[in-house]
Nucleic acid binder design. Sequence first.
DNA 1: GCGATCCTGGCC
DNA 2: GGCCAGGATCGC
Length: 274
Amino acid sequence: MPELPEVETLRRSLQGIQKRSVLGVYLSKLAPVEATTASALRQVVLDATIIQLNRWGKYLLIDLDNEQSLVVHLGMSGKLLWQQDEIPVRPLHTHMELNFDDGSVLRFIDARRFGTLSLTNRQRDNNPFLARLGPDYLNGALDEKIFLKRCHRHPKVNLKTLLLNQKVATGLGNIYACEALYQAGLDPCRLVSATNDQQLVELLIASKDRLKVGVKYGGTSFRDYLNGLGHRGKMKDFLQVYDREGQLTLDGRGTVQRIVQQQRSTFYCPEVQK
DNA sequence: GCGATCCTGGCC
DNA sequence: GGCCAGGATCGC
């Protein structure tokens, strides 16, 4: 579910857990702990103090005062909710709960369990998920030259598939990939090899722009997404094509069609995207 | 590179 | 009952 803007909004909404110490850790029997064991994860997190929150692509990194970080990926349906007035009933599908020294609780809730919980060291070089990520779209590390070089490694894929490949660059998901392609005026089915460098740079610029606007509006809430304080994002009202099959684009330039690529819906406007 | 697969829930 | 969902991996 959550793409870069949603995870960045989540990160910002959880600033209040900084300096809090973890007095209790609950992990459900089905907690999606990966690349380590539940007991090892519990041992690292218990009694640690939160230093700060970081983000890489769609991964949230909760830095601890013991040189380790808890790495949270929300998958399709995951939520992190920081509850300062503790709700007595543990919600269904709560897979992790951190109890802080001020009585507040951070809960990881994920019905589908496509999300993951893992650990990384300070250098961020021993986590298999982070190891697979390309440069983040918004942290300043991705310039035109680097983007072009990485695109040209995949000449035979279409542009939508390219954008969803987190190894090329990380942060775009289904919504913002569709929106970036619309803004760049590029057909999602077009192959990288049939796209010139100027067009690819337009795609990079559009991708960064849409992600920034997504952050500005606190992410997109269709069904599940809530930030750490339980609030919805407002970006849905600014989407041009996503989830608008058969309707006009938001700016009225044409009609939106839905096709399927990689078993995912792609929304685009043939009149605008060539 | 492509298709199947992991899961649960909501909606038609 | 069937289809769909802000994701990503693993076979062939």
